[in-house]
């Protein structure tokens, strides 16, 4: 099975780097879509089937959290796994992401290996249904 992935970030170079990392991550990537903010991402999500969303938080027009809120209200989108890749490091903000049911959280700056290992775990789990955040995820311990 090939997975469709949506990368949401207002920085085109960052989208390009994440896209390249995803493509060499080892799992079967179908189409990779890109959006530069949450609003564009929602438009795409309502038109195309996505298996995973990899999203930044701090974006103009609609940030990652607002996008997550909209996705959770939508019956068709609420089960799509979302990985937040963001500079946000406050515990409160991370807890907020977690309470919105993100599949995982990756803090920028990241290494390609970090992205690969998280995506492999999530996509492995998604074979049996979308994964939830591990409560004791060491990346969340600051």
């Amino acid at each position: 099975m090939a997975y469709n992935i949506l990368i949401v970030d207002d920085s085109p170079p960052m989208r390009a780097v994440i896209k390249k990392t995803v493509k060499v991550s080892g799992f079967n990537v179908g189409q990779v879509f890109e959006a530069s903010n949450g609003k564009e991402a929602l438009d795409l999500l309502r038109r195309e089937w996505m298996d995973l969303v990899v999203s930044d938080h701090n974006m103009p027009e609609m940030n990652g959290l607002e996008m997550l809120e909209e996705m959770r209200k939508d019956e068709l989108l609420r089960s799509v796994p979302v990985v937040m890749v963001t500079t946000e490091g406050s515990r409160e903000r991370i807890e907020m992401f977690r309470s919105m049911g993100i599949a995982d959280y990756i803090k920028k700056p990241f290494t390609p290996e970090e992205i690969r290992s998280k995506l492999n775990r999530i996509m492995g789990e998604s074979e049996n249904g979308p994964g939830a955040v591990e409560e004791d995820d060491e990346e969340l311990d600051f």
Binding site: S11, P13, N58, T87, S90, R91, E92, R93, K108
Partner: peptide, 25 residues
Amino acid sequence: EEILNMIAGSTFSILDDQAVYELGI
């Protein structure tokens, strides 16, 4: 711009990870 965005996020999470700083674009 992205370099500064990452430096800013890192600065405030190192400074105080209990506090919420709203970062601009």
